[in-house]
Design a binder for these strands. Structure first.
Lengths: 231, 231
DNA sequence: ACCTGAACACCGTTCAAGT
DNA sequence: ACCTGAACACCGTTCAAGT
């Protein structure tokens, strides 16, 4: 007899690590990582907070598990995007891989912040970096240059934008706001007026995150390409 | 009569925002940002947690205050380092300014993480970015290129390393560890063996953070320099 | 094997009350 | 004007106890 034999009764789906982690990711997607508390997560699963400790050592282990789940999602997406490279095509392959990783992060905007608090790096992330080194080696990189490249890319290799200050945050500034700004920050004010003037259409969110990410990424990849050819 | 007239008594230094923020920074320096709680901060100041609310609206305001204090420290250090630029020297001036900012962060390793949680950017940080745009303009940058440059630098403009995964974490790996790693991460393992072999002296912390930061920074600055000259 | 209730130590914060 | 005690809602976590 299967465990849910009692016919009419509302059969409880038993918890397991998989279900717990999945629910935690869902909770984070909906309300940010700070909304993931043991008590709220348990409620989401129709259980008590203390039940979670049977499937997860503690909250830190839970967060490690979430981070790992996203890491695997990143790695899978990047692997799907990664075509065989070789020679000059190393750059295109690397670009695709990194932009694919970025797509995953856009679905989990809380993930970068979580990754930074984890002390151990997920194997899936290490696998991602291993693949990047492989692409660079195919492209003729020395191990030394590949090593510098990983450091130079930093978390950008995972698709992180890591911009603390958005020089064009949200809506294009009103003329009045720019005028007030000009006294304290003349150069930024001048920059904003000119850029806003050149592109008057985009009154909202006129800094395209994707464009800026690709600009920075290409700047680094192009620089590395030069170094690769004249070691 | 001054308030501390009562001669023999242990005169209490009154709290104020300045003192509260300074104590909070000290607490963070000693035990990380998570050790800054209202109760512990009050204890450090010889007061009760509730007293803090007279000088700080709430914890978020406290954290904003700490972030602002570090931001001003960064800005001051960067201003001190910033010599007049002009022409080709824009790069050296920018480099000095950013490396000076980095020195401050090394004293407050919790600051990058804190900055990322703040919703509003400190005026001191905006001032720092304004100065960077000024340097680039002196070097002949268009406003458009300067704008892209700010995005490309991202938090690196403040000296952040933002590396989630250190490809040579801590001690140089033992031969046994590399061998075990090789099956799952062949490219990284090969890279590690070669680099460790080339530099057998540095058995501990053989990735020099400062060197790697400067490598990445120069990669970006050099790329921007090319763009500046052929717009 | 899996789940829970009661309890503990620790948070941020409010509010009425003290000097 | 500045500080505090008591209290509340919320954490993570332990431990003995239930099925």
């Amino acid at each position: 007899m299967a465990p849910q034999a009692r016919s009419g009764s509302r059969t409880r789906i038993p918890l397991n690590r998989e279900r717990v982690l999945r629910a935690a990711v869902k909770l984070a997607d909906e309300g940010g990582i700070e909304s993931v508390t043991m008590r709220r997560l348990a409620e989401e699963l129709g259980a008590e907070a203390m039940s979670l400790y049977y499937h997860v050592a503690n909250k830190d282990d839970l967060l490690d598990g979430i981070a790992d789940a996203v890491a695997m999602e990143i790695n899978r997406a990047a692997d799907r995007a990664g075509a065989p490279s070789g020679g000059a095509s190393w750059k295109a392959a690397m670009r695709r891989r990194i932009l694919a990783a970025r797509q995953v992060l856009l679905r989990h905007p809380w993930a970068p912040g979580l990754f930074e608090t984890r002390t151990t790096t997920s194997p899936a992330i290490i696998g991602h970096f291993d693949a990047l080194v492989g692409l660079m080696r195919d492209g003729g990189f020395s191990h030394d240059l590949a090593h510098h490249a990983l450091h130079a890319l930093g978390s950008r290799a995972l698709g992180f934008s890591q911009e603390l200050f958005d020089p064009g945050d949200g809506a294009a500034p009103s003329d009045a706001a720019v005028a007030e700004m000009a006294s304290q920050f003349p150069h930024l004010a001048a920059m904003l007026t000119e850029i806003a003037h050149d592109d008057p259409e985009s009154t909202l969110g006129w800094c395209d995150d994707q464009t800026e990410f690709e600009f920075g990424l290409d700047l680094i990849l192009d620089g590395l390409d030069d170094m690769r050819r004249q070691p």
